[in-house]
Design a protein around this nucleic acid. Structure first.
Lengths: 118, 118
DNA sequence: CTGAATCCAGATGGATACTG
DNA sequence: CAGTATCCATCTGGATTCAG
């Protein structure tokens, strides 16, 4: 079993893993909205994002921001203000998401029309 | 509050919703693998996919297939065999996912190199 | 063979209160 | 302001069993 097609199957596995890596980086209830907010304004403070993203709690915002930072999609800067404020911006790597997000958005629009109606 | 930028904000909201629609359609632990399996072979039976997708249980396979069918990404056909067998294939709409999946895969490869190392 | 039903553990996310 | 800590409800997915 699995002789000639093994190499092909390995390719498939890698492909699936890559897609999953991408999905994981984008997953979580608020990540897309958070990225949009930051991307939109260039630089954005914690409390700004908290207002931009309708419905998110500070707990979840903090959590998702941390994950985005771990994935090097955003950069966190503590500003020397009184009281303290923290600024977030997309990294170069985070900016490469824009193509993906555009593709997903385009497909999502078609998909919604197809499934829900219009 | 929110006067001139309202239209812009509305655009943003739509965009975010579209991305989310796309993510929802692709989400779930096994969907990518299931789509890959079906896509790969063109037509595939339940038990074939169960073997292709390493680790999936029949419960989850059934569930994810149903969601994919609800989203009109795959077509389900009952074959008149004894015992009964069921064939799955991508719909035209499901095939339009290939671009998205390619984009995600490409980005995922870069992302993995960036984050994990290589 | 192709599922559906049940049970159960762990992950996810909301509400609230608290800290530096 | 920018989080952290705690508690709790819901969701997700695995194992197993049952059914057409």
């Amino acid at each position: 079993m699995g002789c000639k097609i093994t190499a092909f199957q390995e390719e498939q596995k890698k492909r699936m893993r890559s897609v999953q890596d991408a999905m994981d980086a984008l997953n979580g209830k608020w990540k897309i909205a958070i990225i949009s907010s930051i991307c939109c304004y260039g630089k954005r403070r914690f409390s700004d994002i908290l207002n931009d993203v309708e419905g998110v709690s500070n707990r979840m915002l903090s959590k998702e921001l941390k994950e985005l930072e771990t994935n090097q999609l955003i950069k966190r800067t503590i500003l020397d203000t009184q009281p303290i404020s923290v600024q977030y911006e997309l990294t170069a790597h985070g900016n490469t998401l824009q193509n993906i997000i555009s593709s997903l958005s385009d497909w999502g629009i078609v998909h919604r029309k197809k499934i829900i109606g219009k």
